[in-house]
């Protein structure tokens, strides 16, 4: 639940989602669910020259299972809050 809650707080921010097929998509986080499926708005593929496949896609749903990384905006990371939430979760909270 920790990361589901975290990503819900991040809605509206710009993120870059890197997939396990090496595609990187930048966009505004629109929503997330408990599987960490992600919906992005105003998307653009980071290397559009190499990957023109999604040129006419502006909004997309990314299946959580194919996500490798999400690059987070520094202003969207509260380190102390994350530590507390992690300790709470580790206790089985």
């Amino acid at each position: 639940m920790l990361f589901f809650s975290y990503f819900k707080e991040l809605v509206g921010r710009e993120v870059t989602v890197e997939l396990k097929n090496d595609l990187a998509i930048r966009g505004t986080l629109h929503s997330v669910d408990q599987y960490l499926n992600i919906k992005l708005e105003n998307t653009r593929v980071v290397d559009q020259e190499k990957y023109p496949h999604m040129l006419s896609v502006r909004n997309c749903f990314i299946r959580g299972s194919v996500v490798r990384y999400v690059q987070l905006p520094p202003e969207g990371v509260d380190v102390e809050l994350l530590h507390d939430a992690t300790r709470r979760e580790a206790r089985g909270g």
């Binding site: 975290y6 490798r68 990371v77 380190v79 994350l82 939430a85 992690t86």
Partner: peptide
Amino acid sequence: KLRSDRELRGKLHAYDQHLNMILG
């Protein structure tokens, strides 16, 4: 150490039981 011959070094800020993590 990750699949696809990737390695990360960073400060651990969050994790869960799946080993999802946030690194800084």
